[in-house]
Amino acid sequence: MDVRLINPFLTAAMHVLKTMAGVEVSPGRPFLKKDSQATGDVSAIIGITGVASGSMALVFTEECILAIVSKLLGEAFTELNHQVRDAVGELTNMICGDGRRRLAEEGFSLQAGIPTIVAGKNHYIMHIADGPRLAVPFQTEHGDFMIEVAFSNK
């Protein structure tokens, strides 16, 4: 897997959450994820095409996303309702867009689809790509979230 395609999405996640919600996040150690089980309570996955094809997913714990959306919208959210799920989709859009913009500056042109949002305990994330699935855990003061990126082998 070409790490040049991955790092801009990680930078984007930090930038988007800091700018839009005032939340500081720090990345942990990346690892290759072997299964499809989500490591959180709500996820969004977005398809990516262009010089590489694959997908990016964000996976939040309930505690983490409720705190982030509360800060993002300036009001308290206490359950994973429609508004919170919508916010997960929009955050995914923004992080994917910001990551693609950074990649475009390095000569990699990518397009993205519309995110699909899934919520619930023990849900699964199905990446379309047949390549390895890289997972990067992030820590915030409100809890953890994960970014998964998978691109097809070419």
Binding site: V69, L72, L73, Q83, A87, G89, E90, N93
Partner: peptide, 11 residues
């Protein structure tokens, strides 16, 4: 299309 962004802008 995302109510979240409409809400952010509306604020």
């Amino acid at each position: 299309d995302f109510s979240t962004m409409r809400r952010i802008v509306r604020n």
